[in-house]
Design a protein around this nucleic acid. Structure first.
Lengths: 299, 299
DNA sequence: CATTATGTTGCGTTTTGCGCAATAAGCTTA
DNA sequence: TAAGCTTATTGCGCAAAACGCAACATAATG
């Protein structure tokens, strides 16, 4: 028995759907399936009636659900008690991050913070994710959602939260560029980087990794445009202006998702590790600690 | 959070000693240490004050202990509920196994059975472990504690419970045999099997694995004696009559433990997987099911 | 009858957990 | 004070568990 499996079971009971549960729990459907199977094996009883079309709880499952909810509640309670969350804690923390990062990460953290510390105001500042570390170091913001850089100042503390791969994307329209790309893909021809207009972030990890990689391939890139933020890269690529490298999360949350596609080149770029970053010194602030605790997996 | 870690924490709180906790939980001390560290990390609070000489709980640890006990109790309760243990279940089950097997495995299962089903009488029959499967197949006993054989009849169900390596043991006295062995070990000489008196079990997995292995090495064994049961092998080896192969568990529980030692040869024999074995057909009997549930790890 | 939606299974890869051995740190004894 | 013991922790190699992907099975839908 572990809290993750219980959480999954409770979610499944709510959604009545493996796929949706998988999305909510950041796992694959097969992982959900096996979690439930393990649970059933450990109690020796069928908990969920699966019907390939709809899922609903068995009587045993309903009983187990009340247990699971109570157990999770007790677990959260003991965590609150031990960190003796001063629920009258109040104040303001500023969090810096890209729109996308806020979307995917903050949506999980914010409700927990709200519930535990009604008095704490989170001030969200959005901008290019690549600026995050600088803004934390300079004290402009209390913490930031950033990708873990290769080297990290030891003044900073980093809490890893999510991992997302980097993809090379291209436009999906009927432009000459698209057709050239598709032709190359169909014939499994390596891309001609010197003729492939590149939309790059002005700075940041995605830019570095792409350029390093091309250098290693002894290719000279044709940089068409440099923009601030991955969201802008997706937008420009979607408009057919070139190809670019962005984290998968940005693609998933982009309104232009339909206008671009992932190209089968450079598929082994090192993925982004997204997480919270703050000055180690500042982490002694109870407000930041509270945020840190809420952000931790298995909160 | 998982039930194993909670159980470990509760045990540690009782024993106040990592080593003893490790033994009780069938783990190494380092594993215990890391379990506690994980727990502390997940609640963000020191739970145990370690002093390299004595361990005692912090205030947070005492609070967590009450939680852990309740959580484990609730978990056991929900398992009982779901299997709707008929506490007035009564009857008799016969369990066959060697003295050693009973010692190491039944001591864990019996208390649980007693607590849950006061009315069920467990009849323990001891004998050579190697007979277990035959006795179950012939219906003489309801179930047996046996080592998992290479091939298992599909009429049988096997529930793995413990794993214990096979060791080659020799006498520790000052006999000529001991001296010859020690000399060979000191000079890293391979054993001369043809001159090394072997004490073998009459039949069973340990015998098979040893003989197969020697055949693979193209060695002709000098079989000095064949006896029934691993315990007897240890006894004869302890008396200085030869060397033999027995599971580690048998050594640990043998009164002759001081008279023998493990030889550094044949160290990679496939280990024994000890567990419960019963006829699949008979497992529908609620009494056997009850025993099965109590035996399961994480009961 | 083909199609779509959805849960499960096989398989290769990654992550986690474990034991062993070395280490560190306190207590006891000479 | 130093040597010896006891006991928790850490580094490292390895084995088991968990995960994702893709293929599969099955039932509702058009």
């Amino acid at each position: 028995m572990d809290s993750q499996s219980l959480q999954i079971f409770v979610t499944l009971a709510q959604t009545q759907h493996f796929g949706k549960t998988a999305a909510l729990c950041h796992l694959s459907a097969s992982a959900i399936s096996r979690h439930v199977q393990r649970l059933e094996a450990s109690v020796g009883q069928l908990l969920v009636e699966r019907d390939n079309r709809q899922v609903h709880l068995t009587p045993a499952g309903r009983h187990f659900l009340t247990y699971a909810k109570q157990a999770l509640e007790a677990w959260q309670q003991v965590q609150r008690d031990l960190n003796n969350h001063p629920e009258n804690l109040s104040g303001e923390i500023s969090v810096y991050g890209s729109v996308t990062a806020s979307y995917s990460i903050l949506t999980r953290i914010l409700p927990v913070m709200r519930a535990r510390y009604a008095g704490v105001e989170l001030k969200l500042r959005t901008g290019d994710q690549a600026n995050g570390i600088a803004r934390v170091l300079s004290g402009q913001d209390d913490c930031a959602i950033v990708a873990k850089p290769t080297y990290l100042s030891n003044k900073l503390e980093f809490l890893p939260l999510e991992r997302t791969p980097l993809h090379l994307i291209g436009p999906k329209d009927n432009s000459a560029l698209s057709q050239r790309i598709n032709l190359a893909i169909e014939h499994s021809i390596a891309p001609a980087w010197a003729n492939l207009p590149l939309v790059l972030a002005e700075y940041g990890l995605a830019r570095e990794r792409l350029l390093q990689r091309l250098a290693a391939l002894q290719q000279i890139p044709f940089i068409y445009a440099q923009v601030g933020g991955h969201e802008a890269v997706v937008a420009m690529v979607g408009l057919g202006l070139g190809v670019g490298v962005v984290p998968e999360l940005v693609i998933q949350h982009s309104p232009m998702q339909q206008s671009i596609h992932i190209l089968p080149w450079l598929t082994d770029l090192e993925p982004f590790i997204l997480g919270l970053c703050a000055l180690r010194e500042r982490l002694r602030d109870p407000l930041l600690q509270a945020l840190w605790c809420c952000a931790k997996p298995d909160s």
